[in-house]
Design a protein around this nucleic acid. Structure first.
Lengths: 208, 208
DNA sequence: CGCAGGTTTTTGCGATTGGTCATATTCATC
DNA sequence: GATGAATATGACCAATCGCAAAAACCTGCG
C-alpha cells in the first residue's frame, strides 16, 4: 500500500487524482457542509470509489482540512495585493472589484469558508487570530495612513474592511436569497449591479 | 399516545416543553447545523430524553423546520416596521440599529438562517421568492420614493437593503472572525463600533 | 379515597447510514 | 514476470434515527 496521503513525494497521477477529489469535495462540502456530506458523494463526484478516496487521503476530515488550507492563500490574496503605493481610492475599489469577482467566480470557496467560520472555525486553528489578524492590521495601518494624510475620509479601517467583506461575500453566500428577492430578470446582472453599488457607496463614503 | 406534535390544541405543559425544545434546538442547530447536530444533543440541552423529544415533535427535521418557521416573522420584523411616513434617513438608521441589535442579542437565530440560506434554503420553501421578495419590493419602492423626492441620494434600493443585511449580520454570523481580527480589547465594543461605522457610512452615502 | 381515562416518560430494539479497515485483484512499468 | 501503485470487494463497527410497547404519572370524578 502506498498511502498517497501521507507520503510527501507524489507522482503526477496522484496529484491529478488528489486534484479531482479536491474539486469534487469543494462541490459537495460547499453545498452540504462537512457533516452533511458523505464520502460516497465526494467519491461519486470524483469518479472514484469511496475506499479509493480514502487511499488518496486519510479520510473525510483530512480532505476537508487540506481543502481549506489549500484555498486559504488564494482567498486572502486580493487583500495582500492592496498596496500602500497606489492611489488610495483606486486600491480600495480594485479590492472591491476583485472580491465581487471572486463571489461570482468562486462561490463554492466562499460558502466553504463561510460555513466554517459560521460554525466557529474549529479547523482554521489559530490562523484567524495570528495570520489573518496580522494581515488585516497591516492593511488597516495603510488605510489609516491614507486617512491621516487627508486622502480619505476618516473612518475605522478595520470595520471598513469588514464591511467590504460582508457586502461582497454576501452575493456568493446568500445567492439564493439575492436571486429570489431580485427576481429572474434583475438577477442576471446582480454581480455587475452589486459592484457598481458598493463602489458608489464607498466613493461617497471615503471622499475626504 | 398523544402525538403532541400533530394535534392543534396543546396544553400549557406541552407548550412549555415545546418551547424548551425550541430553545435547546436553537442552541444546538445554530452551532452545529442540522446534520451536525444529533437528537440526543438537543434532548440533553432541553433536559429531556431523546425519545421524549420525539414525542413532542415528529423527529429531528420537524423540529428544525418548525423552528425556522417560528423565527421567520421575528426576523423580518424590523424591515416590516420601516415606514414611509417617517424621516427617510431616520427610518433607515433605525433599521440599522435594530439589525445590529439583533446581531448582538440573537446571534443564534442569525446563524441559523445564514446556514440555511447558505445551503440553498431548501426548507424555506418558496418563502423567499414570494413573501420576502414582496416585502423587499414594497420597502424598496418606499426608498425609491424618497430618492425620487430628492430626500436621499439616488441608489439602487434593493442593493441598499442587501448591503445593510450583509454588514449587520456579518457581526453575528462571522463573530469568531471579527473577534479574532479585532483582538480582545477592541472586541469588547465591536457592536457599538459597527453600528456607528455603518450609520456613518450610510449617512455619507445617502446624503442627497 | 381510589380508580379510570388520558397524558407523559422510559425502556428496548430494529434498521439504516456512513466511515474505516483488511484483503484481494488488477494495472503499469521496467 | 517482478514490483510497486492503484483499484475493487467485502466486512465491520459505531452512531443515530425512529418506532412500539410498557411503565409511570397525573387528574378529574364518583
Amino acid at each position: 500500500m502506498a498511502r498517497a496521503g501521507t507520503t510527501a513525494r507524489k507522482t503526477r497521477n496522484q496529484l491529478e487524482k488528489r486534484q479531482a477529489i479536491f474539486e469534487a469535495a469543494l462541490d459537495v462540502f460547499s453545498e452540504k457542509g462537512l457533516r452533511g456530506a458523505t464520502l460516497e458523494q465526494v467519491a461519486k463526484a470524483a469518479g472514484l470509489s469511496k475506499q479509493n478516496v480514502v487511499y488518496y487521503f486519510n479520510g473525510k476530515d483530512a480532505i476537508y482540512a487540506e481543502l481549506l488550507e489549500s484555498l486559504l492563500e488564494v482567498w486572502v490574496q486580493p487583500l495582500r495585493d492592496m498596496s500602500a503605493d497606489g492611489d488610495p481610492l483606486d486600491e480600495i475599489l480594485t479590492y472591491v472589484s476583485r472580491k465581487v469577482q471572486m463571489s461570482r467566480d468562486m462561490p463554492r470557496e466562499s460558502r466553504l469558508f463561510a460555513t466554517e467560520i459560521l460554525h466557529g472555525a474549529p479547523r482554521l486553528g489559530d490562523v484567524l487570530p495570528s495570520e489573518l489578524k496580522a494581515l488585516v492590521d497591516e492593511k488597516s495601518a495603510i488605510i489609516q495612513g491614507w486617512m491621516d494624510a487627508g486622502k480619505l475620509a476618516p473612518l475605522d479601517p478595520h470595520h471598513l474592511i469588514f464591511s467590504i467583506w460582508a457586502m461582497t461575500q454576501h452575493y456568493a453566500d446568500f445567492d439564493v436569497q439575492v436571486r429570489s428577492v431580485l427576481g429572474p430578470d434583475r438577477s442576471a446582472t446582480r454581480f455587475e449591479d452589486a459592484e457598481a453599488f458598493i463602489k458608489d457607496m464607498l466613493i461617497r463614503t471615503l471622499r475626504p
